[in-house]
């Protein structure tokens, strides 16, 4: 039973008793996960949170370019009322581009996969 728990990489502890010690294998997995997780935290999660706080800031009246921390949902309202057409246009253009790219790419990929080169030895 104990040998089985060790093979299970510490994921499935028995319902009674303390959870088993993390085995060497699972520790290696966490070690491999670490650089990517740190990278994402520093360069993705923290800037994202900062972006969110900035998006709720308000301006000091009379001092353009200076802000204070606030919960100003008006920024989001402004994003929709002033720039609504831009959102629509962005999604429309991106959708059209995706559609045309798909129409161009599928025959190309098909030819590459089945008709050309070493891969096409059907």
């Amino acid at each position: 039973m104990s040998a089985l728990a060790h093979v299970g990489a510490g994921a499935s502890g028995a319902p009674t008793g303390p959870p088993p010690e993390p085995t060497k294998k699972s520790r290696l997995a966490y070690l491999l996960l670490l650089p990517g997780a740190v990278w994402l935290l520093v360069f993705f999660v923290i800037p994202l949170v900062q972006l969110f706080t900035v998006s709720l800031q308000s301006q000091f009246p009379g001092y353009p370019g200076y802000y204070y921390r606030d919960v100003n949902v008006g920024n989001y309202w402004r994003a929709f009322t002033d720039f609504g057409p831009h959102f629509g246009r962005s999604l429309l253009f991106a959708g059209l581009a995706t559609f045309f790219a798909f129409c161009l790419a599928y025959p190309l990929a098909y030819a590459m996969a089945f008709k050309a080169g070493s891969g096409g030895a059907s």
Binding site: V54, A79, F87
Partner: peptide, 14 residues
Amino acid sequence: LGGFPTAAALSFTL
């Protein structure tokens, strides 16, 4: 000038 919060809100909405 003073467009930072709007830009951030636009990014988040997008």
